[in-house]
Design a protein around this nucleic acid. Structure first.
Lengths: 110, 110
DNA sequence: AGATATATATGGCATCACCATATATAGAGA
DNA sequence: TCTCTATATATGGTGATGCCATATATATCT
C-alpha cells in the first residue's frame, strides 16, 4: 500500500475520474479505487466522505439521494461541467509532476 | 508550480536522488530541484532544511560542515548505504503509484 | 447468534509543505 | 554609502488532509 503522504492530493482526481462516466456513490468509489489499482491504492471512508462533501461544495460534483426499499439510502454523485474542467487540469498536472520527478530523480529505469 | 499536496512525500526521494552521485549542501539541492524540473518543482528552504535533519537522523544521509574563509559555512550531505536502499524502494514506489493512478484515473492520453 | 458486506457520518490526531522571520557574507548597481 | 540580490542555514507557528476510532443502519450467510 502506498503511504499516506504520496496519496495526498491524488484522491480528488481519482474521485472525479470515477464519476466521469456515470454517477456513483461513495462506497462504490472506494471499492473501485481499490479494485482498479489492484490494491495499490486504498482510501479509508473517513477520508472519502469528507472529500466528497468538499468536492460537492466546490461544485465539481453534484449528488442526490437514492432510496430503495430494504436498502440503506445512497448518495450518487455525478461530475459537473466545472468538475470535468478541473479533472482535465489535474490529469495534466499529474503528468507534468511525474515527468518532473523523473527528470530530477530518475524514476524510470534508463 | 505543483501544489503542495502533490509534493508531499516526494521531497525525500528528490533529495536522496540528488546526493546519490556526490555530496551536496542544502541550498544547492534546492536550486537543483528547481533547475532540473524547469521550475515545475520548487521547495522552500523552510521545508528543505528540516527534511535534511530528519533524513540524517534516520541515517539515510550523513552531513559534515565545510568551512571556507570569506564564506558562510555549508553542510554537505552524502547518501549512506541505507539511503541508497531507501532511494531504490522509493523509485519503485513512485513508479507503482503513478501506474496505479493512471490505471484508475487515466492520466496518460490513450 | 455472529460474522461479513454494504453504506454513510464525524471528532480528533499526525504529518509536512509553507509563511514569516532571523542570522551572516559578498558582490553588483545606483 | 546604501540597497538589492544571491548565497546559506535555522526555526516557531499554520493549514490541509489522510487516517483512527467509533457510530448508525440493513441484509445475507453460516
Amino acid at each position: 500500500m502506498i503511504n499516506r503522504e504520496l496519496k495526498r492530493g491524488s484522491t480528488e482526481m481519482l474521485i472525479l475520474a470515477l464519476v466521469e462516466d456515470r454517477p456513483r456513490h461513495g462506497y462504490e468509489i472506494g471499492k473501485l479505487i481499490e479494485q482498479r489499482s489492484d490494491g495499490v491504492l486504498q482510501f479509508h471512508v473517513a477520508s472519502l466522505y469528507p472529500l466528497l462533501y468538499r468536492l460537492e461544495k466546490r461544485g465539481l460534483i453534484s449528488g442526490r439521494w437514492i432510496e430503495k426499499a430494504g436498502q440503506r439510502r445512497r448518495r450518487f454523485y455525478k461530475l459537473t461541467a466545472a468538475g470535468q474542467k478541473v479533472l482535465a487540469e489535474q490529469r495534466k498536472t499529474w503528468r507534468d509532476f511525474f515527468a518532473a520527478l523523473d527528470h530530477v530523480a530518475g524514476i524510470n529505469p534508463a
